[in-house]
C-alpha cells in the first residue's frame, strides 16, 4: 500500500508493457526458431522458407491449433480437458463409419461429405457436453472426468476398428482429399479454418462478456458467483465449445489419410495444453490469450519440422529438445514477482 495516491490516474500507462517479456516471450521464441530454421536450411540447402514447407507446417498445426484454441477457454475458466485426443480419434472413427455405411444409399458425394461434417460436429458437441455436464452438474474434478472419458473414447475407437484401422471407401477418400490438401495455392483449407478459428477465438476471449466471464471464473469462482455470473453455464459452454472445435479439427483430419486407428490423436491433449501454456495462458486459470496459444502451437510444430530438416541432433533426442524449448518459452515470460 503506497501513500502515493493519485485521484486521477493516468489513463494510458501501457507504454511499459511493450517491453514486457510476458508479452514478448512467446514471440521471441518463435522468432528464434524461425531464424534457426532459416540458418539450418541455408547450410544444407533445404527449403525451410519455401511456400510448400510453410504450408505444410501450418496445415499440420491446424488440428492441434484448433483444439488448443478451445482448450484456451477451458483452461482460462479454471478447467482442463485430457480427453480431446481420444475424442478426436473416436469422432474420426465415427465419421468414417457413418460415411462408409451411407455410401451405398446416398448417391451424391457432396451430400455424404456434408453428412460426415454434421456427424463430426454433433459428436464433438455431445462429447463436450458430457464432459461439461460431469464437471459442472455432477461436480467431479475436471482432471478425473476427462481422464475417464479419455480412456473411454480411446477404447471405443479401438473397438470400432477391431484393433486395426478404419479406412474410408476409396472413392470417398478421393472426393474429400481437397478438404485437407485443397485451398488457394499454398493457403490450404486447414490454414484458412485455423486462422478463422484463431481470430474469432481471440475476439471472443478479449472482447465478449463470455471471455471476460471465463477469466473471472478461473480467477476466483466465488467472486464470479457472488457477481451474478452463471458459473455453471459458462463453464459448460467452454467444454461444449472445445468439443465442437475437436469436431472441426476432425473434419480436417479425416481427409488427410482417410483413416482412423487407435493411435490417432495420441498425446494431442498434452500438445494442446502445452501450446496453451507456452502461449502465456495460466494453467490454474484466470488469464488466457488465444493469440499466444496460436504461437505456442506454431512453436511446437516448428520444433519438429526443424529437427526433421537437420541431422545435427540424434532423433533419439527430439523429445529432449522439445522439452527444453517448452520450458524456456515459459521461463522467458515469467512475470516478475509482484512488489509490495
Amino acid at each position: 500500500m503506497t501513500g502515493a495516491a493519485a485521484t486521477a490516474p493516468q489513463r494510458r500507462d501501457r507504454s511499459h508493457s511493450l517491453l514486457d517479456l510476458h508479452v514478448l516471450g512467446p514471440i521471441l521464441a518463435l522468432a528464434a526458431l524461425i531464424l534457426l530454421g532459416t540458418g539450418i536450411s541455408a547450410t544444407n540447402e533445404s527449403t525451410f522458407l519455401s511456400a510448400s514447407n510453410i504450408s505444410n507446417v501450418l496445415s499440420r498445426s491446424a488440428f492441434i491449433g484448433i483444439i488448443a484454441v478451445g482448450m484456451t477457454f477451458v483452461i482460462t475458466a479454471g478447467g482442463l480437458d485430457l480427453s480431446v485426443g481420444s475424442m478426436a480419434a473416436f469422432i474420426a472413427g465415427l465419421v468414417i463409419l457413418t460415411m462408409n455405411s451411407l455410401a451405398g444409399t446416398v448417391e451424391s458425394v457432396p451430400m455424404l461429405v456434408l453428412v460426415g461434417m454434421g456427424a463430426a460436429l454433433s459428436a464433438g458437441l455431445a462429447a463436450g457436453a458430457i464432459n461439461g455436464f460431469l464437471v459442472t452438474n455432477m461436480r467431479i474434478e475436471a482432471f478425473i472426468v476427462t481422464l475417464g472419458t479419455m480412456g473411454i473414447y480411446r477404447s471405443l475407437v479401438t473397438w470400432l476398428a477391431d484393433g486395426g484401422t478404419l479406412s474410408l471407401d476409396f472413392t470417398l477418400r478421393t472426393a474429400i482429399r481437397p478438404i485437407y490438401f485443397g485451398g488457394f495455392g499454398w493457403l490450404t483449407w486447414p490454414i484458412i479454418v485455423f486462422a478463422f478459428v484463431a481470430v474469432l477465438g481471440e475476439l471472443v476471449m478479449r472482447r465478449t462478456a463470455f471471455g471476460r466471464y471465463c477469466a473471472a471464473i478461473g480467477s476466483n469462482e466465488q467472486v464470479a458467483r457472488y457477481s451474478s455470473v452463471n458459473v455453471n453455464r459458462v463453464r459448460m459452454a467452454t467444454y461444449v465449445l472445445l468439443g465442437l472445435l475437436v469436431g472441426v479439427a476432425t473434419i480436417l483430419y479425416v481427409p488427410r489419410l482417410g483413416s482412423a486407428s487407435p493411435t490417432t490423436g495420441v498425446l494431442w491433449e498434452l500438445e494442446a495444453i502445452a501450446a496453451v501454456i507456452i502461449g502465456g495462458t495460466v494453467l490454474k486459470g484466470g488469464f488466457g490469450r488465444v493469440w499466444g496459444t496460436v504461437i505456442g502451437v506454431l512453436i511446437l510444430s516448428l520444433i519438429g519440422n526443424i529437427l526433421n530438416l537437420t541431422d545435427a541432433v540424434s532423433p533419439y533426442l527430439n523429445g529432449a529438445i522439445q522439452g527444453v524449448i517448452i520450458i524456456l518459452a515459459v521461463v522467458l515470460q515469467r512475470e516478475k514477482k509482484a512488489g509490495t
Binding site: N220, Y226, G286, F287
Partner: peptide, 12 residues
C-alpha cells in the same frame, strides 16, 4: 475472497 478479483484490474 468473494467480492473482487484481486489479480484483475479495476475496470474488469
Amino acid at each position: 475472497g468473494r467480492g473482487l478479483l484481486l489479480d484483475k484490474g479495476m475496470r474488469e
